[in-house]
Every structure is written in C-alpha cells, then in structure tokens.
Design a binder for these strands. Sequence first.
DNA 1: ACCTGAACACCGTTCAAGT
DNA 2: ACCTGAACACCGTTCAAGT
Lengths: 252, 252
Amino acid sequence: MAMQTQQSQRRRQVLSRERIVEAAVELLDAAGQDALTVRAVTERLSTGAGAIYHHVGNMGELLTAATESVLVGALAARPEPAEAPTAVPAAAEEIRGVALALYDAVCEHPWLATQFAVQLTRSPWGAVTPRVFESIGGHVRTLGVPRRDWFAATSTLVHYILGATAQNAQAPGDAGRGTGSTAEPDRAAYLDVASRAWQALDPHEYPFIHDIAEQMREHDDREQFLAGIDLVLAGIAATRPAADPGHHPQAG
Amino acid sequence: MAMQTQQSQRRRQVLSRERIVEAAVELLDAAGQDALTVRAVTERLSTGAGAIYHHVGNMGELLTAATESVLVGALAARPEPAEAPTAVPAAAEEIRGVALALYDAVCEHPWLATQFAVQLTRSPWGAVTPRVFESIGGHVRTLGVPRRDWFAATSTLVHYILGATAQNAQAPGDAGRGTGSTAEPDRAAYLDVASRAWQALDPHEYPFIHDIAEQMREHDDREQFLAGIDLVLAGIAATRPAADPGHHPQAG
DNA sequence: ACCTGAACACCGTTCAAGT
DNA sequence: ACCTGAACACCGTTCAAGT
C-alpha cells in the first residue's frame, strides 16, 4: 500500500484538508513524529506552504487531525451494533476487543502513542478521550456497574489502555523505512538487552526490578496487555454489588 | 521559592550539569514544554550555547534529566523503608501513597505528563519505568500476588497511574506566570465547559458520553484517581488464589 | 477562493577561537 | 578542561502577489 506513490496522478489533483491529513499520516507512518514538517507535506503534495495553511490552520491542528483520523479508523473497524449486547460476558469481550483495536492501532502507527498522551495532556476532554470513552463506556454499563460508578470504571479502563499502549508501542526509530515486517527477532533482541540492563542495576536500589528482569524478557506484550484488562475487569466485577454487597474488596 | 532569582550570585558560579538541569526544571515549571530552549537556558545561566552542550549532549537528554530529577524527588519524598511492610492492607496503602506522590508531582509540573509518555514511548524500559516499577512492585509482592503474576499486576498499576496522571494534569497554559494558586474556580469553570461540550455532542453518536456528562462535571480528579487504583487493587485481590482458587473472575 | 513561494523569526547544534 | 558566541541548516508561519 505504501509502495504506490503515483506522483503523476497526485500532482494536479485538487488540494483538500483530507488529502493533507492523509499525507500527514503517511509521513508519520513512514518516519515518525519528527518527519512531519510543513515542507515535507508541501513536497509530497507538490504545493506551497501557503496552500497547507489555507486548509489546516497550523501544525498542531494537523497532528490532531491525523490522530483523530487514525483513531476513528481503528474504532470503526469494529462493528459495534447500535443496540449493545446485554450479556455480561459479551460486554467484557467487547471491551477486550476495543482495547485490542487501540493496541493494534498504536503498534501500526507508533507515533499515536505520544500523540495520545499529548492530546490527553493538552486538551484532556478534547478529541481523543470522548471517542475512547464512548467505545468502552457503553459496555461498562452492560457489565452491571451501578450508575454512579460508570465514570470511575470507564476512566480506569481508558487510562490503563492509554498508558499501556504508550509503553508497548515499540518505536521503530528510522529503521522501518520501506523494509518489510521482520520485527520479531528485533523484538526479542530488544527485550534481551533491556532485561540484561535491569539485571545490571544495583540490587540494593532495585531489588524488585532485579527479581522480575527474567520475567520481563519472556513476557508477551499483547498477552500482558490483555492480562491488565482482565485485572481491571476482575476489579469491576468484585466491586459490583451483586452477590456480596457491603463487602470492601480493597485488601484481604 | 520561585521568587528568589538572585542573578548576582548566579552569574559567576561554576557551571555544572546539575545547575543546567535545575534551570531547565525552573523554565519548564514557569512556562511549559515550549519554554525550554537552549537560548532560554543560556540566558538564565548567563552563558553561551557551547557551554550547555559541553555538559549535556543535546536537548532530549536535558529533558530526560529534568524528568528524572523531578521523578526521583517525588518518589524520595516518601520514606519507603528498606524492609517493606508485610501486612496486606499496609501494602495497599503504600501503593496508594506512591500513586498519589506521582499524581501530585504531575500536578505541580504539568510538563511531566507529556514527558512521561514520551519517555515511555521512546525508551520504554529506560529511565522512568524502572523507578516507578520498583516503587510499586515491592508492595505488589507483599499483597500476596503469586510470583508469576508480579509483572502483570505491577505493570497494570503502573500503566494506569501513568495514563491517569497524564489526563488529570491540568495544563495551565501560559496563565501561571507568577500568579498565585487560585486554580480552583478555573478548574470548576473548565469542567463546566467540558461537560457542556459533552452534552452538546450528538446523542446518537455519543449516548454514553451524554449520560455521564453531568457526572464528569461533578467529579473530583484526585478522588477518581484513587478510585481507579482501588479498582485495580480489587482486581488483584480477586485474582489472587487465596480463598477461592480455580475460579475465573472475568465475568459473572 | 485558492494557491505560490520568498521572507521572517525562531530553533538545535556546531566549531574555531579564546581562557 | 571549560567556555564564548557567531554561523549553519532547519523549522513553523506569514503575506504580497498571482490565477
């Protein structure tokens, strides 16, 4: 898909905000955050700087639009019926599905991780959050969470998802410039290096890190990500006032 | 503390990496991420650009050092005895304490939120993660989590904490330039605006958001943050094979 | 209305030259 | 060794001028 850059067709096509955003996503995917410059977009669309600013406003807006574009695509890929399922296990499965869709999107577009965080910080209730909240929240309702806890349960899931995806998006650096997808050995080697670095830390200052260095090397990102989702879901299930009201689940 | 800028003393003091990092933190606190430029540091320390690069390497390294500096300070503020407590409720309380320390640090230094995310993405197992893992992980062990789940439980907590703090760090924009701390009414007004924006969204596209818009306006950031921690802790307690082994806690 | 592209103010970084 | 500060290549953004 990234190979077919038909510049001849591209040249005299009419410029639009969508085409600019599309070009931005392509640039970000190809070489990361730093590669998105006005000049790069300008060259890719064979136009001038003024033309870009006629459609987009500024650089930050373009980044936001690119982020939203990919996010919407990732969430739309899931069917999500208008009437949500009513069964509890189905709702949990839906939540896992949305989480994985976001996880996969961040893996495909590593720049998304940073961008999620920036969006979250700069305009916390702006573009990204409502969409993710909506995708998760409907299913939280189905889980049987009492109304007053909807916000807490949903935001816990969302924050975990955004935090975890940020970490697990392995940055390809400048390596993935047209090369295929032979990232597996790199991944293993990378974890090996990280694990060794952890083992080399001072055991007195970092006793726990020392203990789990081995576990870290062997861990599967995707599996661990889902384990975290299940942990939060277990917490939601335990807190829910169903069979055992009045019990405080904090410790034991 | 920020008022006493004694330039006379500062001028001919010997330049060091620490003093540069300190100046960087002050600049970031005063006016945010964009305010940290080599020239700004240069002027604040009345020196030349080359002097900075003699001690620091490059801009990214300076940002990382500033992040680590504040992070270490925030974690060191907690006592954390060499021998961790053995009681389960105490361990849970310790985890809440560490989480709140990070939360408060991000509130005090909003630029930290973005920086955490960037660190997480660019070098996931680099500077920030091990310290936070260590602060949380020791107590997870005390919670009675089986060894093979240490990594999963700890990383779930850490990812939630980093995601949640990223969102809750209210960016002060360029407003906080020397003005006191009258952020409370701003906060309420801000949540009010956000809540109205949510209510204005298309109810068909965003039914859940529409439902919790009211709840969002009334929510207390800090309280919700702790509620999320407790939810994950409840999940850890529920998953732990204590009274009820073999049971799957996912749904019910 | 839509686009061009030179120009401007700024940025990170380098490096010959000083002490 | 440590520092100076002009210079360089680059960036986002603007704007008079074109169609």
